[in-house]
């Protein structure tokens, strides 16, 4: 693992900053930050799978939905304590991850992306017609037990979860496993030709991604206290996750987190000027321009700036040294 004290110091500073935020901002901003934290979790989950291995998932809400619905149904319909419902939801999501993994054994590229999109659509239809007495049908569920009360507590819960996930995924991806998963994204045949089982690697990526999505989905539903299929299996929600990961810098863990905060605040910043759907046009244009300017995302822009300010821009970047 390529760890430097500067990395850990930056993480520590970031954690301190995030923990101090409730002292300085309004409750409205905190609620925006809570959404950004959850979006960061979902974007990291997407990044572990798609950013690394190149298997672009258009069906991530499928996994998030399994986590959210399982935990909501268990707690609301079966009175299962929340501390058991969330692990059960994560396990169910990992089973969902295996289901999404199966097509990846045979197909890739746009075909895989379309199959995953079909998974999301299928889930959307199924929760409405199969046992609506459990799922709440088209109206979803409300009155789901919440973990916290108030914006400050909600913020601490979401930021702790997000930081724990981000740091552990960041550590994991700095090991040889992270290199191997990136290699799968670059040339799967060469990974096999290097003596590594790509099936094993992909399965691990799918399960890890599902684990994070399930955890995020379950905590999200217990933060909101409700679940609405139209909002969860919405194409805009899906694209927000993907754009957050791409705009921040795919395959970096830190990038998707950064992208999630950037997008959330961009939308909030635009709200007073463009309260309607027009702001999505501006948001899309900014995302597109940013992506065209630097396809490796915000993290690459910051990295370049950092190198320049250190006066070492000309120096070749050492392997694995990026932020």
């Amino acid at each position: 693992m390529n760890l430097r004290w500067t990395h850990l110091a930056m993480w520590l500073a970031f954690v301190c900053l995030m923990m101090a935020i409730p002292e300085f901002v309004s409750k409205g901003t905190l609620r925006t930050l809570i959404f950004a934290n959850f979006l960061a979790i979902f974007a990291i989950s997407w990044d572990v799978l798609s950013g690394r291995t190149g298997y672009i998932s258009f069906g991530h809400p499928f996994l998030i939905g399994i986590g959210a619905y399982t935990s909501a149904i268990l707690t609301k319909r079966f009175d299962v304590p929340i501390e058991y419902a969330i692990p059960a939801a994560v396990l169910m999501t990992m089973v969902g991850g295996i289901i999404v993994f199966l097509p990846a054994l045979r197909i890739k590229g746009s075909y895989f992306a379309l199959v995953t999109l079909a998974f999301m659509e299928l889930m959307y239809q199924l929760v409405q017609v199969i046992r609506p007495d459990l799922t709440g049908g088209t109206r979803g569920m409300s009155g789901v037990q919440t973990l916290t009360r108030g914006a400050v507590n909600g913020y601490y819960m979401s930021v702790s979860l997000m930081l724990a996930i981000a740091f552990s995924m960041w550590l994991l991806m700095r090991t040889q496993l992270g290199t191997a998963l990136s290699a799968v994204g670059m040339n799967e045949e060469s990974v096999r030709g290097s003596g590594l089982s790509t099936t094993k690697l992909k399965l691990f990526a799918f399960l890890t991604s599902a684990f994070v999505a399930g955890l995020g989905g379950a905590f999200y539903v217990h933060y909101l206290g409700s679940i609405a299929p139209r909002a969860l299996f919405d194409i805009n929600f899906l694209f927000t996750i993907i754009v957050a990961a791409l705009i921040g810098g795919a395959s970096t863990i830190i990038g998707p987190m950064l992208g999630a905060f950037f997008l959330t605040f961009l939308l909030e910043f635009l709200r007073p000027y463009l309260p309607g759907a027009e702001r999505y046009f501006i948001y899309g244009t900014i995302a597109l321009l940013l992506y065209m300017y630097e396809p490796k995302g915000l993290i690459a822009i910051i990295d370049k700036y950092w190198q320049r300010t250190r006066g070492t821009f000309a120096r070749k970047q050492e392997p694995g040294e990026s932020l």
């Binding site: 693992m1 994991l172 090991t175 040889q176 496993l177 290199t179 191997a180 990136s182 290699a183 670059m186 040339n187 045949e189 060469s190 990974v191 030709g193 290097s194 003596g195 590594l196 089982s197 094993k200 690697l201 691990f204 392997p319 694995g320």
Partner: peptide
């Protein structure tokens, strides 16, 4: 040739040296 395009020479070689075991990949350093 089928190199890993975003990896440098040493990282390309590293992939060939890796153990085919997820746990060992996580725990053993390059």
């Amino acid at each position: 040739p089928r190199p890993f395009t975003d990896m440098n020479v040493l990282e390309n070689i590293r992939v060939g040296m890796m153990p085919n075991n997820i746990w060992k990949m996580i725990t053993s350093p390059p």
